[in-house]
Amino acid sequence: MEVITEDYKVWDSDNYTVHLEGTLRLGGSKEYTFITNLLHEVLEKSDNTEITIDLSALHFLNSSGINILSKFAIFVRKKGAIQFTVKGSTNIPWQNKSLPNLKKLYPALILQIE
């Protein structure tokens, strides 16, 4: 799946990776449903064994977006035995500030901010 708008690009690639790029400031969970669905779809494709979310080119994400990532982290934690990786960039300030919270929700999460 690939969604491209003038503000953001969302797609999945090999190795069960979902990429989010650009600026995501959608209103509430409803407008983020297509991303939530893609995350669940990719996780199922891996037979519930692994998933990576690559945020290294996501420059802005609002609190509604942070909420859907957190929800997914909690979902993965509850399912158990899934290798869940989140990739970020140290050059993007919101990621240094907010992504560590995901690890507090799911300590087994592999957080790579490089």
Binding site: N62, I66, N67, K71, N101, L105
Partner: peptide, 20 residues
């Protein structure tokens, strides 16, 4: 914050959760 995120994950009324 962690409590709100756990609560929102249950599908509760997140619009008024104050997460922002």
């Amino acid at each position: 914050m962690l409590e709100k995120l756990e609560y929102n994950a249950l599908g509760k009324d997140e619009a008024a959760s104050g997460l922002g």
